[in-house]
Design a protein around this nucleic acid. Structure first.
Length: 258
DNA sequence: CCGGATGTTCACCT
DNA sequence: GAGGTGAACATCCG
């Protein structure tokens, strides 16, 4: 479930642990703490550290401490639980089941309470001091000029929008919704957009993030109910196309998306 | 039983 | 170098 909007919800929830001292680490899964970090390192480094701030770049949640930065990723099915509560309880894409054995990582605090990631599919992960420079500008904050430059590519515009190294935060649902609102076909070469289309797409993307954020998440788009085989465009009633674009299943309207 | 699902990474092609 | 594809990760659902 997590795209930019969900991770921002997690970040807000995580704000309540700022100022707390870490006293316990739960890291039972060395796959989940892959990459630069081992469970041993987490146990050795985190206890005694105090959380100083929370940040977010795209889909990456950053928990700053007076020691290392904790980078949390949620994959498709990860949720953040703070003091036992999930900010997003019932997920569109998750099942009714909910099992503590899916707690892949957690930290406990001096004040009591905890913060943990529950992720059935283990597609998320934890990293110490993640390389923040590997991410492009955050999609919710990017201005027109950098947006224009990141679209200088012959790749399909959808692929470019979802390339986290170029633009951080746009997932499959948000991207389809933004392109649908902008009336731009996902397969268009990014550098084939003229200036007015570029501005339209930038505005539609920002608006998508604002509106869907207000509604409660990436799955609340106008296009969402029509994302089924044979679904009809909510704007003009044309039958939607369903094809792979940029490696992901893409729904789009052949009538008004050009 | 099979395919696919809000994500990322990597090996391997073209 | 740039893009694209398929696999892998693990679980649930239609």
């Amino acid at each position: 479930m997590p795209e930019l909007l969900e991770v921002e919800t997690y970040r807000r929830s995580a704000e309540s642990v700022v100022g707390r001292r870490i006293v316990a680490v739960h890291a039972p899964d060395d796959w989940f703490t892959k990459g630069a970090t081992t469970p041993e390192e987490l146990h050795a480094i985190l206890p005694g550290r105090t959380v100083t701030a929370t940040r977010r770049i795209g889909k990456l949640l950053l928990v700053d401490t007076d020691g290392p930065v904790l980078g949390l990723r949620f994959g498709m099915t990860g949720r953040l639980l703070v003091d036992g509560d999930a900010p997003i309880g019932s997920l569109e894409y998750s099942s009714d089941r909910d099992d503590p054995v899916w707690d892949r990582f957690g930290i406990g605090f001096d004040t009591g309470g905890s913060m943990r990631i529950r992720d059935p599919r283990r597609l998320g992960g934890v990293e110490l001091d993640p390389d923040e420079t590997r991410l492009g500008p955050d999609a919710a904050r990017v201005t027109l000029a950098p947006f224009r430059s990141l679209l200088r590519s012959s790749a399909p515009v959808k692929a470019r929008l979802m390339d986290q190294a170029r633009l951080a935060g746009m997932g499959n649902l948000l991207t389809d919704e933004a392109l649908w609102r902008a009336g731009i076909g996902p397969r268009r070469a990014a550098d084939s957009l003229d200036e007015s289309e570029l501005r339209r797409l930038h505005r539609a993307m920002r608006r998508t993030l604002a509106v869907l954020g207000e509604r409660g998440g990436s799955h609340t788009g106008d296009l969402q109910p029509a994302r089924v085989r044979g679904g009809l465009c909510p704007r003009d009633g044309a039958e939607l196309r369903r094809e792979q674009v940029g490696g992901r299943t893409t729904y789009w309207c052949p009538h008004h998306q050009r």
